[in-house]
Design a protein around this nucleic acid. Sequence first.
DNA 1: TTGTAAGCGTTATCAA
DNA 2: TTGATAACGCTTACAA
Lengths: 342, 342
Amino acid sequence: MAKIHEVAEAAGVSISTVSYALSGKRPVSPDTRRRIEDVARALGYEPNAGARMLAGSRTHIFALTEPLRADTHAPTHMAFVLATAVAARRQGYDILLLTDEQASAGMRRVAASDLADAVLVLDVAPEDERVAIARSIAIPTIFIGIPNDSEGLVCVDLDFEAATRMAVDRVADAGHRRIAMIGQPAVAYRRSNFPPRVRSSYEAHARARGLAHSFAVSGETQMDAVTVRAGLAASIDAGATALLLHGADDMHVVVLAELAARGLEVGRDISVLSVAASFDSALLPTPLDTIPLIPQASCERAVELAVQALGPNRLRPAVHLIDPVYIAAGSVSAPVAIAETA
Amino acid sequence: MAKIHEVAEAAGVSISTVSYALSGKRPVSPDTRRRIEDVARALGYEPNAGARMLAGSRTHIFALTEPLRADTHAPTHMAFVLATAVAARRQGYDILLLTDEQASAGMRRVAASDLADAVLVLDVAPEDERVAIARSIAIPTIFIGIPNDSEGLVCVDLDFEAATRMAVDRVADAGHRRIAMIGQPAVAYRRSNFPPRVRSSYEAHARARGLAHSFAVSGETQMDAVTVRAGLAASIDAGATALLLHGADDMHVVVLAELAARGLEVGRDISVLSVAASFDSALLPTPLDTIPLIPQASCERAVELAVQALGPNRLRPAVHLIDPVYIAAGSVSAPVAIAETA
DNA sequence: TTGTAAGCGTTATCAA
DNA sequence: TTGATAACGCTTACAA
């Protein structure tokens, strides 16, 4: 298309003035600046990406590495990718996708070829081979999620421990003495980084608060209704009066349906609270109190950190935890003795 | 990292020889070539992306545009993105993600700035604003899916009409006279490009073969078990002896469970055939005959076309249909009169 | 406030 | 079979 010298000519200025006017890196008198902008728009000028990279030593591209394993929960994952792309674009960056085997090999490649200014890491596993790569490459890397060994890394994530404690405290403060958690499919506790953190915080804090507590997974490799109902039945039989849910929307739907089938009204006969869900809980059949995992929050923060890392002083390694937020919807109340409802 | 002149120096050759040895665009004597390759590997040399784009006027990047609407079925979509990225990488291309509002605006931007060599279009809607953009930009654009107006475009897709006819023929040839189709959620027939094609081919061809036929959606905006069971019940009540399924894995699971609950054995009491499913049907509780929609096939073809379009003679507009394949699993057999089983 | 010009690291043309 | 070297289109000191 149009090149910078055509814009310069048409605006009657030098090439460098066009560059400065458009990048804002040097003051330009208001009227020449407007003249330049008008011409640029009229000609549909867009700086040549390759030339810009070469001369500016900035690519304006972030690489996004996501293995996309078979057990990745697609809707959740898609929300993170989307949130990252939107946040990056707002700062003028495009997203280059590194999936599959390229999730690791691509990191080295884009770093070595200067194809990206920084790397954002998604779908972080407890033992993640990308940790070692991040330490060895020359461009900044931001993890969205926390691997077991986060030494020397920059990580961003919801404070799952705080979120979980907040959930336990909420039901404990409401007077519940016996609680239960229905979690993710079992595989998530092996391959993903945060479900184990939620589970252990739950158990530790319930113990600390002196609550009787149980935990059940919602399936083996994916949510299955039979397992969920079994876990729910066991919890209720054990006398649980408050339920913490940590899983996908479909698991919530199954639980709510089963509670309804048992004639238990949420927020009256039984308290239910959703922890670290990343879907829109307003879409559930029954509104639930929620301490959500908001992809936009984590991803925006990660992008900000990446942008900062490209500034004059480089980022120091740290785990950035995002404070949990409690959203009430009336699904948690004081317990009713099971005896009374039976 | 290492630059080309360092490689040249270390290998004792000129810069241009290094470039040619590594790109293979000019014959280089076997031993100098190997010397160069060894040095390059040792130094971890990777050509600078910006310089390569600028000098070569090829970016080695494909843009992938995907709006990611709220009603996009995430797992299916993820399979297409993954397949595209893998196919592109095999040809030496990286994928730049254009989502959300950038799905359209980004197309213009990457074309104008020469950030990508071609655009691949995913999640094609019947009336898709990217069609007009594709016609107006300077770089080749390949649609994976077919919009209503495909004039002048290059499109790739499974031949859904042929797949559907194949399905109808299969059950008709087996002797079934009353058949039913359980399809996608209703929204898919408004917003997506191929479900309407499957539905109308089904109805037209069933009519042509003189079959009694019915059609039911599997929900409103997403699959819901109640709607599926209702559609199934109506089909069976109407005397259908063969079922064509066109939807996601969860819909299949609901149907199979309901058939089992009714004591109907698939492949004996009732025939079931899955049309244009993109998940792995081997994971279903009961194996089903399938005419699959294979993301790898469409995406590989699209990438090939994009690569071709960058060659000397440019691509001519065409709709490339992929032939359907029938995978038998014993779920289709001759009909048993309903009267006998009742 | 603006202009001049030196790179940035490749690719590809032209010679040898 | 190989080497010089002129683009490629921009950014950014350095001057004015």
